[in-house]
């Protein structure tokens, strides 16, 4: 029955007699499509050239987005998914729902990134964000030895939280447990998501919060508040690379590919910095204010496969260290 319906739909869609403006469905996370996010400007720019209707559907955060795709399965309406990060791409690949993107672009990521299925559209460094008055620390060990208080996100419910888990794994490997035990008395609390953590920090509940090096840019550019800064760590800061992919079952393969090409064009990339508050994926001029941001000495990133393989052990280590 389902196959019949799908084929009928395919025939109807393909029939030249019934041809109308084609629709490209893009699933993304909420803050991308909101009126303050990049969504509206990107929709206008793409629709000006594609002769199509671009429809963004927001579905929670990156993890919720992937869960939603898995729920919908192969008959999903989505043609393109935008907003998974590298901690999720291994699982996303294993679902078999995605196909190759076919884009060959010059990316400006601080690490080598090569994935034929998932195309980066922006990226950022994870970092602890604090007031400029707060004495900065430059490593996990120094943070653990200090009296500074921090708020972090739970790796079981939040993507930056999972990023932090991978960060400690990547730079401290076998010593990750000791690092977490050292950090235990610095951690004020662990929140379910970024929103709660960042609010707690702004309310003065902690000296620093796990966020991005680009967070101070929001306060500087949108609020003209230059009191916030991010800490660069000697061992490097973990990268969050946000990616897009094409669904294998898309009924608009050509439009989807056109959109993937658009993602690495200037029209898309120039919107990102001051709406999504992340770094663009290609080498374009950054807006004023971004030059004041902390630039970590190096970017750290576990490969998607490695991140997936080490997650369960890393979670156990984290939970044991913080439960004592």
């Amino acid at each position: 029955m389902k196959t019949t319906l799908t084929s009928v739909a395919a025939i109807v869609a393909a029939s030249p007699v019934l041809a109308q403006t084609p629709t490209l469905n893009v699933y993304t996370y909420d803050s991308f499509t909101s009126e303050w996010g990049p969504g509206p400007a990107i929709e206008d720019a793409f629709e000006a050239t594609c002769g199509c209707d671009l429809v963004f559907t927001g579905a929670g955060d990156g993890a919720a987005l992937l869960a939603r795709l898995q729920l919908e399965g192969p008959r999903t309406d989505a043609d393109v998914v935008l907003g998974l990060d590298t901690n999720l791409t291994a699982v996303a690949r294993d679902t078999g729902l995605f196909t190759t993107h076919g884009v060959d672009a010059d990316l400006s990521l601080p690490v080598d990134y090569d994935d034929d299925m998932f195309l980066p559209f922006d990226w950022g460094y994870l970092a602890f964000v604090a007031d400029k008055d707060t004495p900065a620390v430059s490593s996990f060990q120094e943070l653990a030895d200090s009296d500074l208080s921090i708020v972090i996100q739970d790796p079981r419910s939040s993507t930056p939280g999972l990023g932090l888990l991978m960060w400690v794994q990547a730079v401290h490997g076998d010593d990750a447990g000791a690092i977490w035990e050292g950090l235990a008395d610095n951690i004020v609390t662990v929140t379910p998501g970024w929103t709660e953590a960042y609010n707690l920090f702004l309310e003065g509940e902690a000296d620093a919060v796990l966020s991005y090096t680009t967070s101070p840019a929001y306060h500087l550019i949108a609020e003209e508040d230059d009191t916030k800064t991010a800490w660069a760590f000697d061992e490097g800061n973990y990268l969050q690379v946000e990616v897009a992919g094409i669904l294998a079952e898309t009924d608009q393969p050509d439009l989807a590919e056109q959109f993937m090409q658009f993602i690495v064009s200037d029209a898309f990339q120039t919107v990102i910095p001051t709406t999504n508050w992340m770094y663009p994926a290609t080498d374009i001029a950054l807006p004023d204010g971004f030059d004041t941001l902390t630039v970590p000495k190096k970017g750290v990133l576990l490969s998607a496969a490695e991140a997936a393989a080490r997650r369960d052990d890393a979670l156990d280590t984290w939970r044991n260290a913080l439960s004592q």
């Binding site: 419910s157 235990a184 004020v188 609390t189 662990v190 379910p192 913080l322």
Partner: peptide, 18 residues
């Protein structure tokens, strides 16, 4: 979770979320 201070304060609902 937010006020519990860490993974000791894990509830069933969080486990479901995960």
């Amino acid at each position: 979770l937010t006020l519990g201070g860490g993974p000791r304060a894990t509830t069933v609902e969080l486990a479901i979320y995960q």
